[in-house]
Write a protein that binds this DNA or RNA. Structure first.
Lengths: 346, 346
DNA sequence: TTGTAGGCGTTATCAC
DNA sequence: GTGATAACGCCTACAA
């Protein structure tokens, strides 16, 4: 009744060969269109391959040929996060045309887990490794890999303890632009709602941009206007507290989309249509809001693409010092960032 | 100057063994905590491993042990799409704890490419295969794989030409609920904006739900209210045309998030706050809109998780007939779906 | 045009 | 405790 396929192991080159009455090498030749093969055996071999459902074993092939596995590893903090998902899409698209496949895993922002994943990836002899470093992780241990020529690119955040290729957004410049935009519209009390932990690379860079925009506008830095949040809820709570303070901000700069997703509902519920807002990172319905959400838009797919291309370049044999590519961001004015402060000067 | 690491191939078990003055098998024993090893050699071996930067070659190991590659392949139409990204996140999370890694590629909704990717995945001897079928693809050719025990799960859309495990959303029921919701609020002209091609599984199921809700409400089916769109722009155009018609709808049901993303701006630009709207698929800022967007929310991460778990169960040896898991959806009322028709009956 | 020997890096087996 | 040998499935090198 039941097919006896269960027990039987998969057919190998030898099985096909035996079935046809030729040597394994001949089958190999047919399949790889290698040396010359008579048309008659070619046909018979292909028939047997079809009949037995033979599929070449890539692991054996790679091993024999000494080639690396045709995958590119990508480690991100969170696979489900839309930002990293779009980034992964950029990597996959860039890599697929080169016969490479994306191998992806989540570090959950845990340096230990990141290390474990990296090790597992190296064990499978991947062709390239892209890492969005977990907060606090150190990459000294990858020195040997980098030196041995493994394409190694850090994405969104640079490596720590190791000089290596990296692709990042124009974080500081973008934040500076966004905050300067608010200042240009007359705001002098501008809150900054950033990532937690505050030591996170992107958080630091964006805060630096915030501070430099304030300075350029001649606005004194007020630490009470700078808060941290790691999820929408705490961001919402934080912004309410700020608005309820004796000296509230008239504008808010959210340093990432998580913060924006918390601040927007908080403002809506509080009925505060008067507070100006610029967010780092674009969001799907940003243009449909009333007013539209002004953002400093990153291009996660472009970041992924750039990282993949850097890895491919190294794979091609390009040598030279570690290179950091900065992907531009752009200010998208939609209304929320152009609101004037309540008591505009006459 | 330059390290001579470039040329030297990676150290193997034999290299480590030679360095210590033991056999390869002993090193293997130490690393796998296999047979008994004296403490002194254990220490020496580990030191050599460290020093040489030895990393076991998984390909060789798998080959020798006859085990499959510790990866689970996932093929989606588009990696960058937030829906599939979240789905992939569910898969990755479910699979990671089992020592499996996610291998992901995009079919770009092309059956040919899907086939190519499947073949490539099978060649690397993956432990399980999850596929979101491209529109129009046929899966008869996977019959042998399924029979040989490879965990094979179709996700979001069922297989064609093959009876196999599948995980899908409650598409028909969800659409029926959403449309019934509009009908319950007094609407009798309800437009349906669905996927293109109209033969797509999810599109068909959702339209079926739409039609059955109409029937239950005693509303005649009007084909002029049913349109297709594959991107936000065409969806926006379609809805405008509908609203400008002599007998316009008073409510719209968007059968996927792409349609919602096109219809929402179109309504906003037209200043049509009176048109009721229910969308299939949730969106990040849906609750911040004025009015909030009422949706039939899918749970893509849960779909991915369920698919991965089904594959893991098969991997554990669970036999039995193909099984289809339906993941529930839920209606989230936020305002847009509760708007009454303009001329409400007294 | 086709076949044989050997080895890629690892582990199972069985001996010492 | 430890080691020699063979084998996993494939391809390179060389021979026939």
């Amino acid at each position: 009744m039941m097919a006896n396929a269960r027990k039987s192991r998969r057919p190998t080159l030898a099985d096909v060969a035996q079935r046809v009455g030729v040597s394994a090498k001949t089958v190999s030749r047919v399949l790889n269109e290698d040396g010359p093969v008579s048309e008659s055996t070619r046909v018979k071999v292909l028939a047997a391959v079809e009949e037995l459902g033979f599929q070449p074993n890539l692991m054996a092939r790679n091993m024999r040929m000494g080639t690396r596995d045709s995958t590119v590893g990508l480690i991100v903090p969170e696979v489900g996060n839309p930002f990293f998902g779009a980034l992964a899409g950029g990597v996959e698209g860039a890599v697929r045309g080169h016969g490479l496949t994306l191998l992806m895993a989540a570090s959950e922002e845990d340096e230990q887990q990141e290390h474990t994943l990296v090790t597992a990836f190296l064990a499978r002899r991947i062709s390239g490794l892209l890492v969005v470093p977990a907060a606090g992780s150190n990459h000294r241990y990858l020195r040997r890999e980098r030196d041995s020529g493994l394409p190694l690119v850090f994405v969104d955040r640079p490596a720590t303890g190791l000089s290596a290729d990296a692709v990042v957004s124009a974080n500081e410049e973008g934040a500076r632009t966004g905050v300067a935009h608010l200042a240009a519209h007359g705001h002098r009390r501008i809150a900054f709602i950033g990532d937690r932990p505050a030591t996170l690379y992107t958080r630091k860079m964006r805060q630096r941009g915030y501070e430099s925009a304030l300075e350029a506008a001649g606005i004194p830095y007020d630490p009470s206007l700078v808060v941290s949040a790691h999820d929408p809820y705490t961001a919402g709570v934080a912004v309410r507290r700020l608005l309820d303070s004796p000296t509230p901000p008239t504008a808010v700069f959210t340093a990432n989309n998580v913060a924006s997703l918390g601040v927007l509902p908080a403002l809506a519920e509080a009925g505060r249509r008067d507070v100006a807002l610029v967010g780092f990172d674009d969001l799907p319905l940003a243009g449909v809001l009333q007013p539209g959400l002004t953002v400093v838009a990153q291009d996660p797919a472009a970041i992924g693409r750039a990282a993949a291309e850097q890895a491919l370049a190294r794979l091609r044999g390009e040598r030279g010092a570690a290179r950091t590519v900065t992907v531009t961001v752009r200010l998208v004015e939609r209304g929320s960032g152009e609101l004037p402060p309540p008591k505009a000067q006459p």
